[in-house]
Amino acid sequence: MALVTSGNGAVIREMIRAALASMGYDEDKNLIVDFREANGRYAVLPELVAELIALRPDVIIAEATPAIAAAQKATSGIPIVMAPATDPIGSGFVKSFTHPGGNITGVANMFGDLTAKTLDILRLVFPNAKKIGVLISDNPTHPALLDVAKRAAAATGIAAEGFTARNPEDIEATFVQMKDANCEVVYVLADPPRPVLPQIALKFALPTIFQVNSYVSLGGLMSYGPNIPSFFTMAAQYVDRILKGAKPADLPVERPTTFEFKINLHTAKALGLTIPEQVLLMADQVIE
């Protein structure tokens, strides 16, 4: 099996290893895992995927849309498991959720469908906000997600502008741009986690809400999205079925059915914010 991640690879690898172990797979006995990680630099993904394909794996797990796109371009024969994709149909990875139709199947994260509700929450916490910055990267799903965010923000009377940080080292300069553009809140679109983000947001005193919920435990203010670890458990289940003979074309794409709203009150206090009681009651997890 091959695993290629866009970032945060050590954590993802461990979650997938644990899930496979629960199904009887042991890297010392009946499983070989070849692993490559881009560390947030998506331009290197084609090279990493080529290295993995040269090893002739039975199945590839590709984490996040940039890695899935690189794997798709590299092979039409080796099964690819999405873990996860933001818009698998729009990205051309599968023909439909129920009948993928090719060598790719796996998990969709539904981030695009959550944007309107996220911005409703943002409006409850920041009722007087006039402008938000939307942090994006070179992730190919981000232009469409940015359009969704702009429309959802406009519906609540807020202007939204996109700002690009292509690589992790670009994040601080991008926050300077958002501050200079008079953004009052930042909305971070889904990407493999960049751990420096919450600290940089706090440095510039910009309240930040994330699509990826793991940021809140790193000091992010708020997040709304699906349970991330569940994606990798589901990916391991796809691997198991494929190794036992199932075809990706016949395995429906799974979508999350539960979503989590998280708040970090330590960060709120550091920013001088009071979170309304109504919002606290909505939260699935409050870090105090």
Rank of each mutant, 00 (worst) to 15 (best):
residue 119 L to F: 11
residue 120 D to A: 15
residue 121 I to E: 03
residue 123 R to P: 01
residue 123 R to F: 00
residue 124 L to E: 14
residue 125 V to E: 05
residue 126 F to P: 01
residue 128 N to C: 00
residue 128 N to I: 02
residue 129 A to L: 04
residue 132 I to L: 13
residue 134 V to A: 13
residue 135 L to N: 09
residue 136 I to L: 08
residue 139 N to Y: 12
residue 139 N to A: 13
residue 140 P to A: 07
residue 140 P to D: 03
residue 142 H to E: 12
residue 142 H to S: 12
residue 143 P to K: 10
residue 143 P to L: 13
residue 144 A to I: 09
residue 145 L to S: 00
residue 145 L to Y: 04
residue 147 D to R: 11
residue 151 R to N: 15
residue 152 A to F: 00
residue 152 A to T: 02
residue 153 A to Y: 01
residue 153 A to S: 13
residue 154 A to V: 00
residue 155 A to E: 13
residue 157 G to W: 00
residue 157 G to A: 01
residue 158 I to R: 03
residue 160 A to M: 07
residue 160 A to D: 03
residue 160 A to H: 06
residue 160 A to L: 11
residue 161 E to W: 02
residue 162 G to Y: 11
residue 162 G to F: 11
residue 164 T to W: 03
residue 166 R to D: 06
residue 167 N to E: 15
residue 169 E to M: 10
residue 169 E to V: 11
residue 171 I to A: 05
residue 175 F to I: 08
residue 176 V to K: 14
residue 178 M to D: 05
residue 178 M to A: 04
residue 178 M to V: 08
residue 179 K to A: 14
residue 180 D to A: 15
residue 181 A to M: 10
residue 181 A to C: 07
residue 184 E to R: 05
residue 186 V to T: 13
residue 186 V to H: 03
residue 188 V to T: 11
residue 191 D to N: 11
residue 191 D to E: 09
residue 191 D to H: 07
residue 192 P to T: 12
residue 193 P to W: 02
residue 193 P to S: 10
residue 194 R to Q: 10
residue 194 R to C: 01
residue 195 P to S: 06
residue 195 P to F: 06
residue 198 P to M: 04
residue 199 Q to I: 03
residue 199 Q to D: 13
residue 200 I to S: 05
residue 201 A to K: 05
residue 201 A to R: 06
residue 202 L to T: 00
residue 202 L to S: 02
residue 203 K to R: 15
residue 203 K to M: 01
residue 204 F to L: 02
residue 206 L to E: 01
residue 207 P to Y: 03
residue 209 I to W: 02
residue 212 V to T: 11
residue 214 S to F: 07
residue 214 S to R: 12
residue 214 S to G: 11
residue 216 V to H: 12
